[in-house]
Amino acid sequence: MAPRVDEVKTYPVLDPARALTEPRWVRWVLIAVALSFIALFLLVPLAQVFASALDKGMGYYFNAVREPAALSAVKLTLVAAFFSVVFNSAFGLASAWAITKFRFPGKSLLITLIDLPFTVSPVVSGLIYVLLFGLQGLLGPWLKAHNLHIIFALPGIVLATVFVTFPFISRELIPLMQEQGSEEEEAAMVLGAGGRQIFWKVTLPNIQWGLLYGVILCNARAMGEFGAVSVVSGHIRGLTNTLPLHVEILYNEYDFTAAFAVASLLTFLAVLTLIAKTLVGLKYEKSRQTPAAQAESGIA
């Protein structure tokens, strides 16, 4: 029986997007809190860095940046970042591969240990190397006898930076490779591909964006690392100073403008990294979509 016309109730049309939304004032308060927090703690200091850097004019700024000690710090920072990216890419790939494709004793221990640098204070990480390689340390006398310099030299700085940054790439790759499984590798194997062909033609293209994302994060942290490097570097001006250490020295010498000028270099690198990270992140998300999700959003 069809309902009589006067029996048919009409309901107010609900906007599905609004059905789950808070009242207007709550939304505005939340947005205001988030935005003012960012402005206060991120944008104002960022502007202050550049403003202070240019305090004494462009000439002073460029002198501070072009001074040999500053240039050497830039170079050292880039070298340390380069080595940590290279070492950690190799370690990240190896560990992620081992963890996701094999069963072996000590696997869960390895997964736990990978996070160690995140939980240990960077200063402690630096101290570990001093205790190990320093003159009073375990290997110190032997190193001295063979005239090898690790602490207060480039190798120490690289080691400390590598240690502090080593979770970034493997942490990015492990979940990605877990999610992808090994079916494509198996398919390649049955088709006759060897181990190296499988890695270059199947595995690497599948994880390239995740790897690049990890590299960017690792690089950003490596360039900005202060604590661990500070302990092992010895602060020898023009020799074992990275950019963050150089900023500190200038600041302690009350040369605020120069300190901010050098800091602006670091900030500039950070902003570049942020842009790269965002671009790669977008690409990464896209490549990470599972085939099933793609099928649903694509062709029926």
Binding site: E183, E184, E186, A187, A188, M189, V190, L191, G192, G194, K201, V202, P205, N206, S287, P291
Partner: peptide, 19 residues
């Protein structure tokens, strides 16, 4: 080895190379 066996294998979830 898989190469020597010369078998064709088809997986349930296709396992096509996405890229």
């Amino acid at each position: 080895s898989a190469k020597e066996r010369n078998v064709g294998f088809v997986f349930q979830h296709y396992a096509l190379f996405k890229h």
